[in-house]
Measured scan of single mutants.
Amino acid sequence: ATVHVKGVTYHFDNPEQAEKFAKRMAKELNGEVHVDGNTWHVD
């Protein structure tokens, strides 16, 4: 799974980790999470 945060890409072997990371980053950055298959975007 892949997480894109403000133009930076993070790779996770575990999709659950990717989801938790994306949601945590969105919270910290006051952003929104969008999911597209195995790819998470934090804007």
Rank of each mutant, 00 (worst) to 15 (best):
A1H: 13
K6Q: 13
K20T: 11
G31E: 04
M25A: 06
V5K: 01
A22T: 02
K20Q: 13
A26I: 03
M25Q: 05
T2G: 03
A22G: 02
Q17L: 12
Q17Y: 07
A26V: 04
K20D: 12
N30P: 05
T2N: 07
L29H: 05
E19D: 06
D36A: 10
Q17I: 08
H41D: 04
R24W: 13
E16D: 12
H41E: 06
V5M: 06
R24C: 08
A1E: 04
A26Y: 02
G37T: 03
T2C: 14
D13A: 12
E16S: 10
V42M: 02
W40E: 01
L29R: 03
H4V: 15
K6C: 15
A18R: 01
P15Y: 12
V33H: 04
L29G: 04
K6I: 07
K27Y: 13
G7F: 05
M25C: 08
G31A: 14
E28F: 09
H11V: 09
H11E: 06
Y10E: 01
G37M: 04
D36L: 12
W40M: 05
G7Q: 05
R24H: 12
N14V: 07
F21M: 03
V5W: 05
K27Q: 12
F12D: 00
H11N: 07
T9Q: 08
T2R: 11
G31N: 03
L29T: 06
T39A: 14
P15H: 11
R24A: 13
E19V: 05
T9W: 12
K27V: 10
V35A: 08
V35F: 15
H41T: 14
R24K: 13
W40H: 03
E19I: 05
V3H: 00
L29Q: 04
Q17E: 15
L29P: 01
G31V: 11
A26D: 01
D13E: 12
T9A: 11
E16M: 10
Q17D: 15
P15T: 10
E19F: 06
D13G: 07
V42F: 03
E32A: 12
F12P: 00
D36Q: 12
L29N: 04
V35P: 04
A26K: 03
H4P: 00
P15K: 11
H11P: 04
L29K: 03
D13L: 09
A22M: 02
N38M: 10
E16T: 10
W40P: 02
R24G: 06
E16V: 11
V35G: 09
V8L: 11
A18Q: 00
A1F: 15
Y10G: 00
E28Y: 10
D36Y: 13
Q17M: 12
V42W: 02
E32Q: 14
A18H: 00
N14Y: 09
K27C: 09
H41A: 05
D13F: 07
H11M: 08
D43K: 14
D43S: 15
H4K: 12
T39G: 10
T9M: 11
T2K: 12
K6S: 13
R24I: 09
N38G: 06
A22P: 00
V42E: 01
V3T: 02
V33C: 08
A22L: 02
E32I: 15
T39N: 14
E19Y: 07
E28G: 04
T9L: 11
A18V: 00
E28Q: 11
G37W: 03
F21H: 02
M25Y: 04
V33G: 02
N14H: 10
V35K: 15
N30L: 06
E28K: 12
F21S: 01
A18F: 01
F12V: 01
N30R: 09
T39Q: 14
M25I: 10
V3P: 00
D36R: 11
K27T: 09
N14R: 08
H4E: 08
T9S: 09
K20H: 10
K20W: 10
V5L: 08
T2I: 12
T9K: 09
W40C: 04
E32G: 07
K20L: 13
Q17K: 10
W40S: 02
T2D: 06
K23Q: 12
V35Y: 14
T9F: 09
A22H: 00
H34V: 08
V35M: 11
V33M: 08
Y10W: 07
N14D: 14
H11D: 05
V8Y: 10
V5Y: 07
N38V: 06
D36N: 12
V5N: 02
H41L: 11
V5G: 02
T9I: 15
V35E: 05
L29E: 03
D43C: 15
H11C: 11
H11G: 04
H34A: 06
T39I: 13
H41C: 12
D43N: 13
T9Y: 10
V3R: 00
V5S: 03
E16R: 10
D43I: 15
Q17P: 03
N38P: 05
V3D: 00
D13K: 10
E32V: 15
K23F: 13
T39R: 13
A1R: 05
K23S: 07
D13Q: 10
N14S: 14
H4A: 06
H11Y: 15
E32L: 13
F21K: 00
D13R: 08
A1Q: 08
K27N: 08
G31F: 09
E32W: 15
V5T: 03
A1D: 04
A1Y: 15
N38Y: 09
E16K: 10
V42R: 01
N30D: 08
D13N: 10
Y10A: 01
K27A: 13
M25P: 00
K27E: 12
N30T: 05
H41K: 08
V3G: 00
K6E: 08
A22E: 00
A1L: 06
Y10R: 03
V8R: 13
F12A: 00
D36E: 13
E19A: 09
N14W: 07
T39K: 12
F21I: 02
F12I: 01
V8P: 00
Y10V: 04
R24Q: 14
D43G: 11
D36I: 15
V33D: 02
A26G: 06
R24P: 00
E16L: 11
V8H: 10
K23M: 14
R24S: 09
F12Y: 03
K23V: 11
N38I: 06
W40L: 05
Y10D: 00
H11W: 14
V33E: 03
H34G: 04
V3N: 00
T2P: 01
N30I: 04
H34K: 10
G7H: 05
H34T: 12
G37A: 04
A1C: 11
A26H: 02
V8E: 09
P15Q: 11
G37C: 04
N38E: 05
G7A: 04
E28W: 10
W40A: 02
N30F: 07
V8C: 14
A26W: 03
G37F: 04
Q17W: 06
M25W: 08
D13H: 08
T39V: 15
E32R: 14
E16H: 09
V5D: 01
V33T: 06
K27G: 06
V35T: 08
V3K: 00
N14G: 07
A22V: 03
T2W: 14
G7K: 04
T2E: 08
E19N: 05
N30H: 10
Q17S: 12
H11T: 09
Y10L: 04
D13I: 09
V33Q: 03
V42Y: 02
K6T: 06
H4N: 10
G37V: 03
N14P: 01
G7S: 05
T9R: 08
D36K: 12
E16G: 08
V3Q: 00
H34R: 15
F21W: 06
A1G: 10
E32N: 12
W40K: 01
P15R: 12
H34M: 07
H34C: 11
H4I: 15
E28A: 11
E19R: 07
V42S: 02
V33P: 05
T9P: 06
V8M: 12
T2V: 12
A22D: 00
K27I: 12
N14C: 08
R24V: 07
D13M: 09
D36G: 04
N14M: 07
V8N: 08
H11R: 09
K27F: 13
H4D: 05
N30M: 08
K27D: 10
M25N: 03
G37I: 03
V42Q: 01
V5I: 11
P15I: 12
A18Y: 01
A18G: 04
H34F: 12
N38K: 06
T9G: 04
V3A: 03
K23N: 11
G7P: 03
L29W: 05
K20F: 10
D36P: 01
N38R: 06
H41R: 13
D36M: 12
K23E: 10
H41S: 08
E32P: 04
A1K: 04
Y10C: 04
E16F: 10
V5A: 05
G31D: 03
F12E: 00
W40R: 02
V8Q: 11
D36V: 14
E32M: 14
H11A: 07
V33L: 12
G7E: 05
V3I: 02
K23C: 12
G7L: 04
W40D: 01
A22K: 01
V3W: 01
K20C: 08
F12R: 00
M25H: 03
F12L: 02
G31W: 09
